[in-house]
Structure formats: C-alpha cells, structure tokens
Amino acid sequence: MTRYTDTQLDALRELANIGSGTASTALSGMLGKSVDISVPNAFVLPMAEAVGSIGDAESEATGVVLGIVGDMPGSVLLLFTPKDAELMCGLLGVEAGSEYGISALMEIGNIVGASYINALGQMIGMDLEPTPPAAATDMLGAIVQTVLAERAGAGDVALLLDSDLVVEGEDCSVSFLLVPDQGGVEQMLERLGV
C-alpha cells in the first residue's frame, strides 16, 4: 500500500484548500450568498474503507461528477444530501427532485467543479480540463464506489481530498471529493516538491 508522509498530506490538503476556495467564490457568485469552506481533509485509504469514511453507504445522496482529462486524469465528485439538495435548489428557485432541480445541481457541480479543477491545474502547473458533468441521485455507496471504480485501475488505495462548502445563513453544504488516478498523486507531489 502506498504511504504518504505528513508533509505530503499537508501539501495535498493545502491544494484542496485553495481549490475549494476558488470553487466557493464561484458558488457564491452563482447563489448570491457568501460561502464558507471547511478545513479540508486528506484521506489516503484502502479502497475498501473509502466509502465508509464518507458516510452511510445506503443513505440517499445526489452526486455530480466531472472527469479531469489532461496531465493528471481523475474525477471530482460533489455530494449533496437530500436536505442540501433541497436548500440549494430553493436558493435557485427550482424544485428539488424535478428535472429542473437536477439540472440546477448539475450546473452548480459544473461551475464549482470546473473552477476547482482549473485552480488545481494552475497551482501545480498542469494542463487540466474538466469534462461535462453527470449526475445521479441514489445510495451514497453506489455513487462513490462507481467513481472510485473508474479510477481504481492501478492501486488499492484511494486518495480523497474532502472539503465542505457551507452556504451562509442557509446552513447547507456540498462535500467535495477529488479522486486522482493512482499515478496522479505522485505527479502532484512532485510538482509541489514534497
């Protein structure tokens, strides 16, 4: 199993922090509300443990996933609980669960995810492009496992950079996961010089 030092995890956490900072600015512009970010977590976990660390596998969630193509392939996954999805849709004046609701969440995912990916690319000097978003509302485990499975080819370890965006006054949050392909983590660390 690949191991990372504390310094390396700190560096990855810092990357996630700056990326989600940029993403929160984008979300704030879209919603017209101030958006705070939590201190990000960096988990390096055996794949089997990854889902459990995120939440109850059978709880309902809406996931919006964007692929990353370019120098460091990977995925960005945004997760909304049903309550958060409803609040978020309410802020945009659409009904959660309706066709408009899903496309509103996809658009949030698109804007937030793309700005995260762009910020990440700039920081590490890599050419990273987001692919168009896809969404699903289902069991949390099924959503997370499907995203991990796509990126699981090389190793048994998943790196999850996890931050929460909290929309002020509305107490709703989006969690954010960056799942790079296995080789991508080493590449990122190399660019960061740690």
């Binding site: 794949m47 089997a48 443990e49 990854a50 889902v51 459990g52 596998a57 059978e58 289902d138 069991m139 949390l140 485990g141 099924a142 959503i143 997370v144 496992q145 499907t146 991990l148 499975a149 796509e150 699981a152 048994d156």
Partner: peptide, 25 residues
C-alpha cells in the same frame, strides 16, 4: 464485504452484505 473484498461462510445465520453496489458486482 466491501469494495474488492470477499467472504465465505458455512455458519447458518451468518449474513454476507455488500452495501450500495453501483457499477460493482
């Protein structure tokens, strides 16, 4: 039985579970 795991049992009453399978089988 989590991602990439397997289990077997001969003990009646045991339950083997995989939660929230998506693209996995």
């Amino acid at each position: 039985v989590r991602m990439g795991e397997l289990a077997a049992s001969a003990v009646a009453g045991d339950v083997l579970v995989s939660l929230g399978l998506g693209s996995c089988i």
